[in-house]
C-alpha cells in the first residue's frame, strides 16, 4: 500500500502556493483572484498561460508575461527556485508579473 501511495506522489508535481502582484495598471487582477496553487514544475510559459486565462486576467489577446521573484526573473521552475533558495513547499511565493520582452517565438518551450 505504501508503494501505491508513493507512486501516486511521483506522478503529480507537488503544489506551490503563489501570490501574484503587478505594477502594470492595465493588467491588475480582480480582488480575490491573486492567489493560486500551481504545480511545482510550472515555468514562465505555464504561468503566463495561467494568468492570460479567462478566469484570471481574461485578456482579449494573450499578453506574454515574465515573472519576478524577489527582484530576479524566474528562469527555471518554481520547484527549482525553492530548492536553490533553501525554501520548502510551505512557503507562499510572491510573483510579480511584467510584460515580457522575450520574442513570442520563445513561448514554445514550456
Amino acid at each position: 500500500m505504501a508503494g501505491m501511495e508513493s507512486q501516486n506522489l511521483a506522478t503529480e508535481a507537488q503544489q506551490v502556493r503563489v501570490n501574484f502582484t503587478s505594477s502594470e495598471p492595465d493588467l491588475q487582477l480582480p480582488e480575490g483572484k491573486s492567489q493560486l496553487l500551481v504545480p511545482g514544475d510550472i515555468k514562465r510559459y505555464g504561468l503566463s498561460r495561467v494568468l492570460n486565462s479567462g478566469s484570471m486576467l481574461n485578456t482579449s489577446s494573450p499578453v506574454p508575461l515574465d515573472f519576478l521573484v524577489n527582484g530576479t526573473f524566474l528562469r527555471g521552475s518554481l520547484e527549482d527556485y525553492l530548492k536553490e533558495n533553501g525554501l520548502s513547499f510551505e512557503t507562499t511565493v510572491t510573483l510579480q508579473y511584467v510584460r515580457s520582452l522575450i520574442p513570442p517565438v520563445y513561448q514554445g518551450s514550456f
Binding site: 506522478t11 503544489q15 502556493r17 501570490n19 480582488e31 480575490g32 483572484k33 491573486s34 492567489q35 493560486l36 496553487l37 500551481v38 504545480p39 510550472i42 505555464g46 495561467v50 478566469s55
Partner: peptide, 18 residues
Amino acid sequence: KDSVLNLRKVQFVKDAIG
C-alpha cells in the same frame, strides 16, 4: 483577499498515459 475561500488550484490536464 488571501482567504482560503478564494484559493484556486491549477491543473494541466494529462491523458491516460501521462
